[in-house]
């Protein structure tokens, strides 16, 4: 049985630009087969295998669906509409892991020197300083702020090593967004997200997403950069044991650098969002 709280959330199910006519994208959500297609009038529709239409929202280049009754509107991402930003769809990567582990990895900084070596991090610059984490009850989101990390090549447009500042945001159970120092504009943040489609508890499609101030770098290079980063992450995500994310303390050992992950797990557990989670220690 899938908890109602899980069914009532929004999940990404397709890139809007790639949705075709019936039967469109035949995929699944929370283990249930669905079709994402364009109707004759041009609207995007999502149907279950029984032909039942479910709630749909189009936003941030993606189609979002809810199998139950949406508990709230889809999260706001005002930067997506900000003039001057380039929106970059980076395709989709299938990963054999819990959708929650994919989000948690996105929130993690400490792995940069070891998994994204010489790009997002490099030894000996491994220290993760204190940062602030909150579960913001007004928007029902997890936020981490004042995160700083030394990066050899923080973005495709970065020329050399810089200390990058980050903010992290869990905007939905399987969607996270980060705001990081923009190499081209000192008063703005680059926005990078991952939208994770839970196909099953241990299988997901991950859509990286970017909204950048970068008028120079060719689109293909931006996509290659993001795909390189995410494929490095995939080699981790498919080799974590257990496949499901443990929500109970004891199974895994966090440190101060993992405060975002601790808050994310606590938030999931409190909300009963246990799809893809291991609740009782094995």
């Amino acid at each position: 049985m899938i908890p109602q709280a899980v069914l009532d959330q929004w999940y990404p199910v397709a890139m809007t630009s790639l949705v075709g006519p019936w039967p469109g994208r035949e995929t699944q959500l929370l283990g249930r087969p669905i079709m994402v297609f364009k109707t004759q009038s041009g609207a995007v529709s999502v149907q279950t295998a029984q032909g039942q239409a479910v709630a749909v929202t189009l936003a941030y280049g993606h189609v979002w669906a809810c199998l139950g009754t949406p508990a709230q509107d889809l999260f706001a991402l005002p930067e997506a509409a900000q003039p001057g930003r380039r929106l970059v769809d980076c395709g989709v990567v299938r990963v054999k892991c819990s959708p929650l582990r994919a989000v948690e990895n996105f929130l993690d900084i400490a792995h940069f020197p070891f998994v994204h070596t010489d790009v997002l991090g490099a030894e000996p610059h491994t220290e993760v300083g204190r940062y602030e984490v909150q579960i913001r009850d007004d928007v029902d989101e997890v936020w981490a702020t004042k995160v700083h990390f030394y990066q050899p090549q923080a973005a495709k447009s970065a020329a050399g090593g810089i200390v990058t500042e980050y903010m992290y945001r869990v905007a939905a159970p399987t969607a996270a967004v980060l705001y990081k120092t923009c190499p081209n504009r000192t008063n703005e943040w680059d926005v990078i997200g991952i939208f994770v489609q839970p196909l099953a508890e241990d299988l997901c499609d991950v859509y990286p997403y970017m909204a950048l101030f970068d008028d120079v770098t060719p689109q293909a290079d931006l996509i290659h950069f993001q795909q390189m980063i995410f494929l490095q992450d995939r080699s981790i995500l498919e080799n974590q044991i257990p496949r499901l994310l443990p929500l109970d303390p004891g199974m895994e050992i966090p440190t101060q650098a993992d405060l975002t992950s601790v808050a994310y797990r606590r938030w999931l557990k409190r909300k009963g969002l246990t799809y893809g989670a291991q609740v009782v220690a094995a």
Binding site: S235, I236, N239, Q240, I241, M251, E252, P254, T255
Partner: peptide
């Protein structure tokens, strides 16, 4: 055991 106690990653990697 092929598992880092921190985040469950295989130590054989």
């Amino acid at each position: 055991v092929d598992r880092c106690p921190h985040r469950g990653m295989r130590l054989s990697h």
